[in-house]
Nucleic acid binder design. Structure first.
Length: 239
DNA sequence: GAGGAGATCGTCT
DNA sequence: GACGATCTCCTCT
């Protein structure tokens, strides 16, 4: 529950949940602009906040899948005990030490892939973890990729149903067919890339900041960013 | 709705 | 061999 995770002084996500955006199950993307590498060449905290409201777009032979980024977490690099880069460069995390704007995908708990984007200049580790998307384009294909059965047509209009598609790092990666083998090291800013981040002009009204979740080390730092009131952010019990 | 526990396997030491 | 930036099922209230 986010409200329990929020330290005093931060926006309470629970209160903001009262205004709920309607699901936007579009059939295609409108006019969008791809982000440039410079966008990611800065502090992961600024990138994590700025990414909210942007679109994560996956192009596949069967069509486009896209979701609005509603939740991110910043990982700061060598000085961040929770970051994969804290132990230094390895074969697994090499992307974090590379140029900004590239996908760092890792496999966790034997079941799940998680997508990050590298930040800061070449040689300086830092990244942002994508934690949740609001499905925008290709919703049915995403449910298919997740192995979720659509019992009734009206399910695709229910927030409680749509939330199961991509609220959580593992769910989100599965919905967009993201895997380490296929996507790790891929540029998210190249026009030729099949996995990109784009701006469609959406403006975020309020950003909530809470401690990161699902981690033990450096768990107290407020480095999780989410669109206040958005129903598609991931929920997780805090013990 | 909330909490507990198992599944599952790549990566690192 | 241990750990882990998760998810889902099952049980209890």
């Amino acid at each position: 529950m986010e409200s329990r995770a929020s330290p005093p002084g931060h926006l309470a996500a629970g209160r903001a949940r009262t205004h709920v955006a309607p699901p936007q199950n579009k059939s295609s993307l409108g006019r969008v602009t791809g982000l440039k590498a410079e966008f990611f060449n800065r502090d992961p905290r600024r990138v994590a906040r700025a990414l909210l409201g942007k679109l994560l777009v996956r192009k596949t032979p069967r069509g486009v899948l896209a979701g609005r980024i509603v939740e991110t977490e910043a990982y700061l690099g060598k000085n961040d005990a929770a970051a994969h880069a804290t132990a230094g460069k390895t074969a697994r995390n090499a992307v974090l030490f590379g140029p900004p704007g590239h996908a760092y995908v890792y496999f966790i708990y034997g079941n799940h892939h998680c997508l990050n984007v590298s930040c800061l200049p070449d040689g300086v580790p830092g990244c942002v973890l994508f934690r949740a998307l609001e499905p925008v384009v290709g919703t049915e294909r995403m449910t298919d990729a997740r192995g979720i059965e659509i019992a009734k047509e009206i399910d695709l209009k229910k927030i409680s149903f749509l939330k199961k598609i991509s609220s959580g790092p593992g769910r989100m990666a599965e919905a967009l067919e993201i895997t380490r083998k296929r996507d790790n090291g891929k540029s998210l800013v190249s026009q030729r890339s099949d996995l990109r981040i784009a701006d469609d002009g959406y403006r975020v009204r309020r950003v909530a900041v809470t401690p990161r979740i699902g981690i033990v080390k450096s768990a107290e730092q407020p480095l999780r960013y989410l669109i206040a009131g958005n129903p598609f952010v991931s929920g997780r019990r805090v013990h």
